[in-house]
């Protein structure tokens, strides 16, 4: 099974996980949440993310789901992920990406899961009134 770490500014990720688990079921293993608090020093952030990545990296792969491209979670995680095989750093996390990751991380291999998460995340962004309602 592919492991997942959600890393966000504040408690956004914790609530995303709670909502996604309500939809696809509780994740008993292979999942970690890291909430970056403004009270943490950059050193502390590095330490927490690095420890989680060391802990969670396995043979099937590791997917980091991060909120903002260019934010602290990404800036810290990216250099740490550089030399790890089968480790994806995916930004712009939304709930469809999390449910997709939970639902398919056992069935799909690493490369396919990464594509699936990004596809489902992109597809979630839409203006449904113009899409579904006839004028």
């Amino acid at each position: 099974m592919i492991n997942i770490i959600v890393i966000t500014h504040g408690e956004f990720g914790a609530y995303l996980i709670e909502a996604a688990e309500g939809i696809v079921g509780a994740q008993r293993e292979g999942l970690r949440n890291i909430s970056i608090s403004p009270r943490m020093t950059l050193e502390k952030v590095k330490e927490v993310i690095s420890a989680a990545m060391a802990d969670m990296h396995g043979a099937d792969g590791l997917v980091l789901l991060i909120d903002m491209p260019g934010g602290t979670p990404m800036n810290v995680a990216l250099p740490l992920a550089r030399d790890i095989e089968k480790c994806a750093v995916i930004c712009g996390v939304n709930i469809n990406m999390v449910t997709s990751a939970f639902a398919y991380r056992q069935a799909l291999d690493f490369d396919r899961l990464v594509v699936k998460i990004m596809d489902d995340g992109r597809k979630a962004i839409c203006e449904v009134k113009s899409l579904l309602m006839k004028k």
Partner: peptide, 12 residues
């Protein structure tokens, strides 16, 4: 809805 689309469909 989500439970069906993301839960049951891939599971079954």
């Amino acid at each position: 809805h989500g439970q069906v689309a993301e839960g049951w469909v891939p599971h079954l």
